[in-house]
Design a protein around this nucleic acid. Structure first.
Lengths: 138, 138
DNA sequence: ACCAAATGGTTATCTTGCTAACTATAACGA
DNA sequence: TCGTTATAGTTAGCAAGATAACCATTTGGT
C-alpha cells in the first residue's frame, strides 16, 4: 500500500536493520545505538558529545543520554576540556577499549552476512542510494 | 565513518524522512505514525489491529497504542467482531473520513516535493532498493 | 461436555528519538 | 570593565519502537 513511499520504506527498513544489529550487539550487553556511540568514541578519542551527535545524525540530548549509558557501564568517561571549560571530551576506558576489536569484527560480520543474504548488487544499490538521499536532504 | 553501513544509513534516513512528513502531518494534529495508521484504516475499513501492524511493519502493541491515540482524537473507533468476539474491527468516524482526501493529497505532495528535491532517478533507486532489501530480509 | 491449545488483543516496562528550556562557560562590543 | 551574545552541554517531558507477560474468546480433541 505504501510501497513507493520514502518514509514508509526507510522506517520499516530501519526497524528490520535495528533488529539484525541488536541480536549481535546484545552479546556485548549493548543496544545498537549504544554500540555505535562506543565505536565513534573508540575511533575518535577525545571527541565531543556534539560531534558524536553530528556524526550519527541524532539530536544532542540523545547523544548525551547514550554517553551517560556507556559511562554507567564503565566503558567510556568524560573529561572537562583544559583550554575550554565548556567542552567535555569523551574517552574509552580500559574496559571500553577491550571491546574495540570484537565489536568492530562482529559489525563487519553482520554486514558480510546481510550482503550475502540480500545479494551484493541490491545491498550496494540500497546503501549508495540511501546515502545519496541523505546528502540531498541534509 | 559508517557510510557503507546498512543500519546506519537506514536509521539516519528514516529520521530525516520522519521530520519531513512530521512537518506536514502536524497540520492535521497527527504524528507520521498516527497519520499512516489513519490512512490504513481509511483505505481498509473494518481492518484488525494485527492487520495494521503487519501492513506497517510494526509490533502489535505499537499498533494498539496508535489506534488508542486516534480513538482518543475521535478519528476512528473499534467495534467488536460479530461472528468472532476476539476481533475488534476498526473504522474511521465521520471526523476521520473528513481527513481522507486532505491527508492523502498532502502525502502525495510531500512525495512530489521530495522527488524533485532529490532527483527522480535517485528517489526511485532508493525506494526500489529499500523495498527489495525489506523483502529479502522479511 | 470439557479442558487444553490457539488466536486476537492489551498492559507493563524499557530504550531511543525529538523539542523546548535550562545551566555553565567563553567571547565580544561599547 | 561589564553586560550581551554565543556555544557546549544537560534536563524534562512526550511519542514511538520493542519484548514479555497477561486477558478474553474460540477451536478442537478426547
Amino acid at each position: 500500500m505504501f510501497d513507493h513511499c520514502l518514509y514508509f520504506n526507510s522506517s520499516a527498513l530501519a526497524r528490520l536493520a535495528e533488529r539484525e544489529w541488536g541480536l549481535v550487539y546484545a552479546e556485548f550487553g549493548l543496544t545498537p545505538p549504544q554500540g555505535f556511540v562506543l565505536r565513534v568514541v573508540l575511533a575518535t578519542p577525545g571527541c565531543l558529545s556534539s560531534q558524536v551527535a553530528d556524526l550519527l545524525g541524532i539530536a544532542r540530548p540523545t547523544a548525551t543520554r547514550l554517553i551517560d549509558n556507556l559511562s554507567d557501564k564503565g566503558l567510556i568517561e568524560r573529561r572537562q576540556g583544559e583550554t575550554d571549560g565548556r567542552e567535555w571530551r569523551v574517552y574509552a576506558t580500559r574496559a571500553g577499549k577491550a571491546l574495540d576489536r570484537p565489536i568492530n569484527e562482529a559489525s563487519a560480520q553482520i554486514a558480510k552476512n546481510l550482503r550475502a543474504k540480500i545479494g551484493p548488487e541490491l545491498f550496494e544499490a540500497a546503501v549508495t542510494s540511501m546515502h545519496g538521499v541523505r546528502k540531498a536532504l541534509g
